[in-house]
Each structure stands twice: as structure tokens, then as C-alpha cells.
């Protein structure tokens, strides 16, 4: 039974974590000077780079301009060396297109687009190393990049992928757990208001367990938001100290 390996009797997972423990998060804002906003985030062994351009004049198809708010344009792609098996195409396949759409939905919920009519905001995320929870790491990295670009948001957007094994929810799945046949749920949350921006699950789960799983996901997201908050405040302190008027 897969469950026996993923969660031991003492409550330890494959990588030694407890069921509700998150992986170590390290992040840095303002990584690239040429973009409007950029951030690098590592969650365990999954590493992502997010870059934001904008808001700027609409490029390409003028017909997509919205007269009352900004258009958010996302692209998710993976480096060809990011997975154990080399990927042939960085983006353009169905999975990447689906992820890009999810990211767009997530950020449309949080970014205050009505302040920028007729303009466009580009969010590009690149996975440099993939070890599970790709969507969540992208959302977290992109949040930092959007804050770095000075684009107004209602709140942080934090995301986490949780799984359900042996009646226990496991927070922040790694690749081995995701591919071990665990029912996984990805959740993007605006922590202060407790509002869910995106909810996605693609496995079978008994509806009695759904509430527990969502609760666990929300707690995990709140944990992530604390870490992101720390990163942003530290960056603010560093930079505002230098500008000293």
C-alpha cells in the first residue's frame, strides 16, 4: 500500500518531515535589474524565478484591451533541465498552458487591475528545478515579483499543495509524494481575508474528507504567508534604509 511508505507509523514522511510541516522557503526580491519586478523562490528543492513587466501599453493585439482594467498575461514554463527526465519543450504543451491560465485566474483575483485601464501586466514564471508543488511555488514567487514591481494588490497570494494519506492531510507535497498516487489539492489563498483565489483537485476523494483537507491547506498557506511577509519586510528595510531622504 502506498500509504505505508509515504507516512510512517511515527508520523514521518519520506523526507523526514511531519505531516503539517512545510519545506524550507528561501527567497529574494529584485533579482533582475531590467524587469519591473522580479523574485526568486526556493521551497525545498523546487526553485522558481518570476519576472513581472508592466503595467505598460498593450502590445500585440490591441483588440484585447479592456477599457476599464488591465489585462494580466501569464506564461508558465519549465527549464528543460528542471525535471529528472529531460523535458523536450519548455512551454507550449497542454500542461504549461493550463498552468498559465490558472496563474492568470489567481492574480486577477488579487491584483487591483481597475487602477490601470487599457494597459497590460505580464507575469512570467520559470521553474528551474522541479520537485513537486510547482503551481504553489510559482504563485508564491509571482506574488513577490508583483510586490517588487510596485503593482497594488489586495493582499498576498499564497499557495500550497496538500495531499491526503491515511486519514491525514500532508502539507506541501514533494514530487515523490505527488507521484505516489496521493489525492492532491492545490489552493491559492489571500491570507488576511481568508479568501480562496483558486482551488484545484484532480484525484478521487471522499467528500467527508474535503473539509479537513481544505482546512489543512488554508493553514499551510497561512504558514507560507508568514515566511513571505518576512522576506518582503526585510527587503523593504534594506532598501528604504539606503534611500534615506
Amino acid at each position: 500500500m502506498a500509504g505505508l511508505e509515504l507516512l510512517s507509523d511515527q508520523g514521518y514522511r519520506l523526507d523526514g518531515r511531519k505531516a503539517t510541516e512545510l519545506r524550507k522557503v528561501q527567497a529574494r526580491m529584485g533579482v533582475f535589474a531590467q524587469a519591473d519586478g522580479s523574485a526568486y523562490l526556493e521551497q525545498g528543492n523546487t526553485k522558481a524565478l518570476a519576472v513581472v513587466y508592466g503595467p505598460h501599453e498593450m502590445r500585440g493585439s490591441r483588440s484585447r484591451t479592456l477599457h476599464d482594467r488591465a489585462v494580466i498575461n501569464c506564461q508558465y514554463s519549465m527549464a528543460t533541465f528542471s525535471t529528472a527526465e529531460r523535458k523536450r519543450r519548455p512551454h507550449g504543451d497542454r500542461k504549461s498552458t493550463e498552468m498559465s491560465l490558472h496563474l492568470k485566474q489567481t492574480f486577477e483575483a488579487a491584483v487591483m487591475t481597475q487602477l490601470y485601464p487599457r494597459s497590460q501586466i505580464d507575469i512570467y514564471v520559470k521553474i528551474l528545478q522541479s520537485d513537486g508543488g510547482n503551481y504553489s511555488v510559482c504563485v508564491n514567487a509571482a506574488t513577490l515579483a508583483v510586490i517588487d514591481a510596485g503593482i497594488p494588490m489586495r493582499d498576498y497570494v499564497c499557495a500550497c499543495t496538500v495531499g491526503f494519506v491515511d486519514e491525514t492531510p500532508l502539507a506541501d507535497l514533494c514530487y515523490a509524494e505527488e507521484s505516489g498516487g496521493v489525492s492532491s489539492l492545490a489552493l491559492a489563498l489571500l491570507p488576511r481575508g481568508g479568501q480562496i483565489a483558486l482551488l484545484q483537485m484532480d484525484a478521487r476523494l471522499h467528500q467527508d474528507h474535503l473539509e479537513t483537507l481544505i482546512e489543512a491547506a488554508m493553514t499551510a498557506c497561512k504558514g507560507v504567508s508568514k515566511v513571505l511577509d518576512q522576506v518582503v519586510r526585510q527587503h523593504l528595510e534594506e532598501v528604504s534604509m539606503l534611500t534615506g531622504e
Partner: peptide, 16 residues
């Protein structure tokens, strides 16, 4: 060899 000109570098490299 494979060179990936990612959209990170400039929005012109988005998509194809």
C-alpha cells in the same frame, strides 16, 4: 544543444 530564449528576458520572447 537547446537554447531557450525565455520570456523573462524580454516580453518579445513570449510564446514562440
Amino acid at each position: 544543444f537547446f537554447v531557450d530564449c525565455s520570456a523573462n528576458a524580454t516580453p518579445e520572447f513570449e510564446g514562440r
